[in-house]
């Protein structure tokens, strides 16, 4: 494998599972080429390990699939991981917690009047936001692990941005001031704010 000296992110023309790679590279201050498409190009489908995107191609030409595998790799190579093995474990704990709530959200039927969907926004999501509020209260640093921004903060931001801002009925965030302040603080970080300002506008 030989690379062209640049990072490349390959994903659909939306935020979805690809946005975390773009956000993490942006926070790392790394230039990357943002390849977007409406349907998976045949060459990518044939050459990608899991036939899936997002796909990160490193400057050396290494190809990494799976959004959280990409995220951990960027974290480990650009100073966005924990400072110790214990911090890395706590980062993973937060990432997996986010994955749990993402999975619950993804499994919901689209129908806004569906009972499961209503229950998710009225009960399940507030319960989980409470979990995240408690973590921030415990760290007291404004970050989910330790006292600096890590991939855990970026993953929470990107995931909650898509879950919470998705529907008009989802406004439980106001009851969780630390979670809310954290999302605002991450969005306001200069490199992330610059990325948000320049990224293509998309529905999802």
């Amino acid at each position: 494998m030989s690379g062209d000296g640049k990072y490349h992110v390959h994903y659909f023309a939306g935020r979805g599972l690809g946005e975390i790679a773009r956000i993490a590279l942006s926070e790392a201050g790394v230039e990357f080429e943002d390849h977007r498409f409406e349907s998976l190009p045949a060459d990518l489908k044939a050459t990608t390990k899991f036939g899936q995107v997002p796909l990160l191609v490193t400057p050396a030409g290494d190809r990494i699939n799976q959004s959280t595998a990409i995220l951990r790799f960027i974290g480990a190579t650009h100073g966005l991981s924990g400072k110790t093995a214990l911090e890395n474990a706590e980062i993973d704990q937060v990432i997996e917690g986010v994955n749990d709530i993402r999975a619950k959200y993804r499994a919901l039927p689209a129908d806004a009047a569906n009972e499961e969907r209503i229950k998710f926004f009225s009960t399940v999501l507030p319960q989980w936001l409470g979990y995240f509020e408690a973590i921030l209260k415990k760290t007291g640093s404004g970050f989910y692990v330790g006292s600096n921004v890590t991939i855990a903060d970026l993953y929470v931001y990107v995931s909650f941005d898509s879950v919470i801002n998705k529907t008009a009925d989802a406004q439980p965030i106001d009851a969780f001031p630390l979670v809310k302040a954290h999302l605002e603080a991450i969005a306001a970080r200069p490199r992330i704010a610059a990325w948000i300002a320049k990224r293509p506008v998309s529905q999802w």
Partner: peptide, 8 residues
């Protein structure tokens, strides 16, 4: 790199 391959 090895960890990323395992994670993937």
């Amino acid at each position: 790199y090895s960890a990323a391959r395992c994670d993937q």
